[in-house]
Amino acid sequence: MSTAPKLQVVYVAGLATVQDLGRRGYRALGVPVSGALDRLSAAYANALVGNRTGYAVLEVFGSVRLRLTVDAVVAVTGGYPRVVVEGVEVAPWTPIYCRAGSEVSVVPTGRGFVHYVAISGGILCEEVMGSASTYVRGGFGCLGRALKPGDELGARPVSADEVWDRVRRVKPPEEVVARSADPGDPAVLRVTEGIHSHLLGDLSTLLTSEYTVTPESDRMGYRLDGPPLVAASKLGRLPSTPTDRGYVQVPPDGKPIVLMADAQTTGGYAVALHVVQPDTDILAQLRPGRRVRFKLVSLDEAEGATSRYLAELENPTLKVVEEEYWT
């Protein structure tokens, strides 16, 4: 088959990288898992265009414009961005048939923070340690850096018939699309106690206060502002422990940091809480200024929520759209 590029990056304002569901099995070497910040959105983007959920997609903070060099099905998920194909506004969270030469723009709205673009066949880019996820700090995975105008990406070939077959009348469940819909209320993140809760003692400050996402947040961690956990300043530095996405680290200033997709594999700050994995996706969609609360759940509940989430990542449930809603 031809190795011609399928996707050309025309314009980027913000940060665009290639991500999949993460790089597993190398944490013991210090390699972060990386992958999509909102994994459920990435999995649904792939499912909507008929791909396996672990295929590589584009992750976009900000705006991007892409040109397709083949006929393809495209889906945009994440928050609820404005999507324009050849000058026509189309809905996100829907498979879109695009002719070769089409330009697709994704522009943020007030809903959500990070968006995903999947193309039928999935983006083909260099995999290292079994994943195409770009770890910009390490300079590896796909191009090893953020995308810029002029970059060209390949995709697995899909025949013209197959492309047509993939334009299906399907949509994700409402609750998946609506996970971060209401900017007015604080998002509620379910947590278990973290691995150092026994050293920190009373965690009620964290569990009863509201926190605001700060602009210093990035793929490595979302930093929160709000009432400090004073006990953390007395602990200082601890022996380095393994750390992961969802760990709520509290440095000596007492302000929590929720580690995210590019989390370092070990760290020396106290870990007060642990956000359950599906709720790290919800946090990912909160832009600076949005507010969160933590809600303590039992380990049993966390295991149940994680189990359902992992199953959904592997096999997202798509619903058939009623005829009347289909135009």
């Binding site: 944490r27 380095s240 189990s307 992992l310």
Partner: peptide, 17 residues
Amino acid sequence: DEVVLGTTSLAVYYDPR
């Protein structure tokens, strides 16, 4: 799934399913 060492601790990652 994975086992990761800290300096005086370790983490065992598992699939709750």
